[in-house]
Amino acid sequence: MFDVITNWLSAMGSFGVALLMFLENVFPPIPSELVMPFAGYLSARGEMSFVTIVLLGTIGSVTGAVLWYWVGLWADETRLRRFIAGYGKWLTLSNEDLDRALAWFRRHGAGAVFFGRMVPGVRTLISVPAGLTRMPMLPFLLSTALGSFLWTVLLAAAGYLLRAHFDRVADWLNPITNALLLLLLGLYLWRALRGVLRS
């Protein structure tokens, strides 16, 4: 995964940052934790502007979040519950999971969106309850943009500051990310199989 991301960014430049950060929100196995630090590293080498990669990374991230917001808005809770009842076992989702997510979101509102944008594993889907609960678009966009901006700045700055050691980081990061993806795949298959056996 690391090699794919680094090759893509080297080939596409700053706009590749926006595209990958958008895809990271739509397809979670693409990790922002690899995209933005490598973009920061390229910035430290003078191949990209730091301000540009942060702005484009934020725009890509917010665009992906808005897509999920519209999914939540379109689906509505009743339709989503029917979908989970029929296909949730393949997504390892249950209506109890939805109940917990909605209860948490209703307690914290805009704060859930803001902080959720900086939590791996949560940042991608935090927009769905925002859409389901009809959170107004302006507060949603402000919370999403601010949280996404802080996240991209932190990750890009880490890559920028690690520039002298990035090759060494890459040597151990690539096998770790591959192992993590395999672990996530195994976890998904286990949960999906358990859901099928229960139905």
Rank of each mutant, 00 (worst) to 15 (best):
V35N: 01
L98I: 15
M135C: 09
V122Y: 06
R79L: 06
P129N: 04
R194M: 09
T92F: 15
V66D: 04
V196S: 09
G40V: 08
L180G: 02
W151P: 05
L23F: 05
S148A: 15
S94P: 10
P37W: 07
G159T: 13
S43I: 06
T177P: 05
R107H: 11
A103N: 08
K89M: 04
R163K: 14
L180A: 10
L184A: 11
R82A: 13
L183G: 12
P129T: 07
W104S: 12
G57H: 00
G13R: 07
T63V: 15
W90P: 03
W74I: 13
W68I: 09
G195L: 02
F114I: 09
L193Y: 14
L146Q: 04
Y160K: 10
S94W: 10
A75R: 03
L154W: 11
L173Y: 15
S148M: 08
S10Q: 14
G16K: 07
L154N: 07
L73H: 12
F2M: 12
L138S: 13
G64I: 10
T124W: 04
S148Y: 04
R79I: 00
G72E: 03
G40Q: 08
R191Y: 01
L189F: 11
T78P: 08
W74L: 13
T6Y: 00
D3L: 14
L161F: 15
F166G: 08
L93Y: 00
L102P: 03
R100M: 12
N174L: 01
Y160L: 07
I59Q: 03
E33D: 14
A85N: 13
F83P: 05
